[in-house]
């Protein structure tokens, strides 16, 4: 569905260097702190910015070569962009109707009602959460094959976030050939939704792993100085000095649990993996 190979984009001191892939039938997450390069990756993938090197293949074509027909099959939400604030949702409906041949007007209106998105109010007067909901609802109601969602849950409360994530799950269940690329800085959103996750830091992809492996096989070892000395370092991905000794990220939690019964080995969470990958020291 989407393939990004050795994409390089330079902005002053910042350099994005990204290789990633979104396969058919999968939800792929892109996680990273603000300014890591998530939005730049999305913009390059969608042909909104030029790039210095590498190539992008979106639905089998370079973004600049995508026809209107191709773009009808892509649903997009961008972090800081949407319909003009000087429109109302009731104005957006005929626009969507004219732009997308497969726009499901009744489903869109029903979801707007269900999610409390007002039809007769200027979008500029919407709360951040309402704007986020509108963007997602517009993206999922025209029978797209691929959703490219940049921070779609930003500004939503916990309940609304869960409901939106459920919409994504339902969207995927409707057709097994669909795919989603989603970014978020709320890692719990991605943990429960994605099949695989890319981690981006300072414009570089620093980790790509299946979510199941990440959650089941990654772990955080907490060792004091003497325990750390004796520790087999082969499966340690990064280390960070702590008050008690050392925190070590491993992708072989089971190995350390079996061979070092005295050690505290915690199950990995995405947040911990991110913190260790970014803040820790690689061995």
């Amino acid at each position: 569905m989407l393939e990004i190979n050795s994409l390089v984009k330079k902005y002053g001191d910042f350099t994005l260097n990204c290789t990633m892939k979104v396969d058919k039938g999968r939800i792929t997450g892109l996680v990273g702190e603000n300014g890591a390069g998530k939005s730049t990756t999305f913009k390059a993938a969608l042909g909104l910015i030029s790039y210095d090197a590498g190539n992008v293949s979106l639905m089998g074509k370079a973004p600049a070569e995508l026809s209107e027909k191709d773009k009808e099959k892509i649903g997009v939400t961008l972090a800081e962009s949407g319909f003009s604030g000087y429109l109302k949702v009731k104005d957006v409906v005929p626009v969507m109707d004219a732009i997308y041949p497969e726009f499901d007007r009744s489903a869109f209106l029903e979801l707007c009602g269900k999610f409390g998105v007002p039809l007769d109010k200027y979008i500029k007067d919407f709360s951040t959460g309402m704007k986020a909901k509108l963007k997602v609802l517009a993206a999922i109601t025209h029978n797209a094959d691929l959703l490219i969602m940049d921070e779609p849950t930003t500004g939503l409360d916990v309940m609304a976030r869960e409901r939106i994530l459920n919409l994504f799950r339902e969207y995927m269940e409707e057709d097994e050939n669909r795919s989603i690329l989603i970014s978020s800085h709320i890692s719990s959103d991605l943990e429960g939704l994605c099949d695989d996750i890319y981690m981006i830091h300072n414009g570089q992809i620093i980790l790509h792993e299946d979510t199941d492996i990440l959650l089941n096989e990654y772990g955080l070892i907490k060792a004091d100085a003497s325990q750390y000395e004796k520790l087999e370092k082969e499966y340690i991905l990064s280390v960070r000095k702590e008050a008690f000794g050392y925190a070590c990220l491993t992708n072989q939690r089971q190995y350390y649990m079996e061979n070092y019964p005295d050690l505290v080995v915690e199950k990995g969470t995405l947040d911990e993996v991110i913190t260790m990958m970014i803040g820790g020291e690689k061995l």
């Binding site: 909104l48 209107e68 961008l78 800081e80 003009s84």
Partner: peptide, 15 residues
């Protein structure tokens, strides 16, 4: 241009 809407418009099936 308001609210960066341009960006979003270019993701729609519009060349």
């Amino acid at each position: 241009e308001f609210d960066n809407c341009y960006l979003f418009l270019m993701t729609l099936p519009v060349t």
